[in-house]
Amino acid sequence: MANPTATATAAIRNASPGPSLRRLLGIALLLAVWELVANTSGTRLTPTLREIGTRIAFDLETGMLWFHGRLTLMLAFSGLLIAVVIGCATGLLMARSRWAEAMMQPLLGATYPIPRLALYPILILLFGLGAAPKVTLVVLECLYPMALGTYVGARSVTKDQLWLARNVGAGWLRTLRDVTLPAALPAMLTGLRAAAPIMLIVIVVTEMIGENRGLGYMLMLARANFEPDGVLAVVAVLGVLGFLFDRLIALLSKLLVFWERGVRM
């Protein structure tokens, strides 16, 4: 069947070398530069890729990575999950209610540029050391991309689509489920994609302060023992995790937002 847009898109994709290959090429280049620096500098501060790899294997073997990584990811995902729930609700409310929109927009705009990490000492005073202030900070940071993504997405529902729903006699819940949420989904996933790396950054930074477990603690421990390979092992693991999450969300988008052709992540 004739579908010029899809055919054209397919043609463009086929003409260039695999996009995933190009993606890996950038990473390979970075690693090559690092290796070059490591081999020529001759200081212990820049261990070679082999040394970092050996350290990762060692940390895996001792169970350190698994133990600390699991704790970190648990807190990180708890925070993200809460942020997704609150962010989506806020975004939907803002898109549907002029009141909520008028109230929330300046609030988000004014608090967005504040470095929320600076609130961490206060959160510690409020909640004590432990999981609560960390999760709270992850929620605070990830809330913005989720709320804004959902808001933009829900706003993309057209007047005609809403009128159609009213014409058909769909109630608000049915309209939310069958019209607003699917229409908002692409922008919500973009929000999630922005939130995922923020989640990792925030959780690791909080673990670097007055903590005795988690990947951030592992990193600080290696630093205290003057083990650059240990520090970089954690950094590399974080990089891999970030990359995996990103690809996972991209794959999710492709599966869920199949109707948006030409949008590639």
């Binding site: 005609d160 689509q161 009128w163 159609l164 699917p182 948006e260």
Partner: peptide, 12 residues
């Protein structure tokens, strides 16, 4: 029954 200028079909 209302028919709009655009078909207003849900793309999903």
């Amino acid at each position: 029954g209302m028919m709009f200028q655009q078909a207003t079909l849900f793309p999903w």
